[in-house]
Amino acid sequence: MTRTALLAPLIGALALAAPPAQAEEGKRVQITGEVIDTWCYFSGVMGGPDAVVGSAHHTCALWCAAGGIPVGVLAEDGTVYMVVKWDGGADVTTSDTLLTVQSHLITADGVHFERDGVNYLLVEEVVADQGITNLTHEDYGPVPPFAIPDPNG
């Protein structure tokens, strides 16, 4: 049986079915916000949302990004965008440049999709990087507390 013959029922089913999700277009956007760790933000595992952003949570954000947890951009209006492309590439968990902007306030051009309550951002280009501006360590100290090893042992 040829590959075409094998695929024929599948193609037929597709023709009859409702349009697949891929048909939906993303929307061009420019988002300004802080690069955050989405697991800690949504799960509360390290505390409330205000404690798991900024300088207090910077080391944890590095760990989570390096560990492959989705990186997000927390926009000025409070919306979190899941970064699934960075600098136009989809290999986000191995991106060194994505790691270097953890906790930074950035402005990114990209494409936005919303699916089932989750906002996805395909970043094409970072057009501004203001570094870390959210000095949460002044209020919370390191989050989690062991993020900075105690120099006294």
């Binding site: 999700a21 989705p70 899941m82 699934v84 989809a90 290999d91 986000v92 968990t93 999709f113 395909l122």
Partner: peptide, 20 residues
């Protein structure tokens, strides 16, 4: 992987751990 589901760019290995 997320990019595949959103855009139809679908490597056979879903990025082998590099894609969300």
């Amino acid at each position: 992987d997320a990019v595949c589901a959103l855009t139809g760019d679908c490597p056979e290995d879903c990025g082998a751990g590099a894609r969300q």
